[in-house]
Design a binder for these strands. Structure first.
Lengths: 210, 210
DNA sequence: GCTTTTCCTAACCAATTGGTTAACTGGCGT
DNA sequence: ACGCCAGTTAACCAATTGGTTAGGAAAAGC
């Protein structure tokens, strides 16, 4: 079976190990912070000897960068874009839904990102500066057009984006707190839908779209 | 002047040093995380020799606990309570305003707290479990009464509390990101009022109170 | 089969860090 | 004048941690 051989070709083992390491590292960085996560603890979690980790990644900092990069990539993909043609209501609804699902499906991603920002975003300054500012400007402009067109209430578009970000990410970042308060061990199926419904309703109403 | 002596009596120097240390420690913990902040770095920031820090606090962990405690105390005071007698609109408005002002005036407090929660709240489990859950239950019940009374729209009270928490704290925790996006060096006077106005408007409207 | 490249790992090392010790200083009460 | 005790600090130490090295085991390539 040459087909099978192709799949098992060089680099396969490397890729597998790297994924294992990155997964373990993500958890460890979230739980202990950058300095608190040790190469050894990552190794233990990944079930690999420490030296093996350094064989694949050279540096602890390299591991962290890889984690961050991978996280941001996924983030970007998952959220998608706001489609101007569908009007404010559908656009906002879709955006909220995507962000909430993201928070429930990949809380670690949101957490890593949040910790970075809280600590001053020392590892992703250029990212935020160039890409993110651009993104907000663009979307704010779009919202402003809808407002000028009388298609939605006159609310500050930039703060509206902040509101959507904060309220959706909260379910990932503050997972622990929320679960404790709701006296649960973990989120359930229905929770996602309930949160989507709640936030959509509140925010759309706030924008005069319901 | 015995009056003056009273003020300068024993313990004055102790109190002063402790404040200096706690202030420096707070900054350092926010910037570097628990493990990343070293006793030496705290000492440097407080302009005291390392051994002096340990003279007042024994442990690094003790310092952290003191910081956490102080933070939570201030937090609690600053937010005050929701007064049932004033009706939902005034109550929510007041609550939002207090939380936003808190975020702008003491971002480090919010940040320390956020990092604790993100990392699993290992240092304040009992606090959240007992006190906070109680608080949410109580307030949720109050909101539910207003809803049943037809004084506000039928929205989930618990999620409403989460929404207020997340959207207000966001301006503290994500300060860095927000400033970068708005292309600012720091918040200005007007920003607080603007955020209060924006969030009040949005959330009140969401609750059918505007 | 052999060679070459990738992968794995024990042993080691230098640097950092939390924390201790023990000695010194200075002011306050009597 | 003297003793006492809070405050200060240099020097030190054990433990941890990031990272290296060097040599062996497996695969891949031929």
């Amino acid at each position: 079976m040459t087909e099978n051989n192709k799949v098992k070709k060089t680099g396969n083992i490397r890729a597998k190990s790297q994924v294992k390491i990155l997964t373990a590292a993500t958890t460890e960085f979230v739980l202990q912070g950058y300095k608190g996560a040790t190469v050894q603890s990552i190794a233990d979690r990944a079930n690999l000897p420490k030296a093996n980790i350094l064989y694949y990644f050279k540096n602890k900092e390299n591991i962290y960068h890889a984690v961050l990069e991978h996280t941001l990539e996924m983030w970007d993909e998952g959220i998608g874009d706001i489609d101007p043609s569908e009007g404010p209501k559908a656009a906002i609804e879709k955006f909220i839904e995507a962000k909430v699902r993201m928070s429930f499906n990949h809380p670690e991603a949101s957490k890593i990102y949040a910790m970075e920002i809280i600590q001053g975003a020392q590892h992703l300054k250029e990212f935020a500066r160039t890409y993110q500012r651009q993104w907000v400007r663009e979307k704010a402009k779009l919202f402003q057009q809808w407002i000028d067109n009388g298609e939605m209430a006159d609310v500050d578009p930039v703060h509206l984006i902040f509101l959507i970000w904060s309220s959706t990410q909260h379910y990932a970042d503050f997972e622990t707190q929320i679960l404790t308060i709701m006296n649960r061990a973990e989120y359930e199926e229905d929770d996602v839908e309930q949160v989507i419904a709640f936030l959509s309703q509140m925010i759309l109403r706030g924008c005069g779209l319901a």
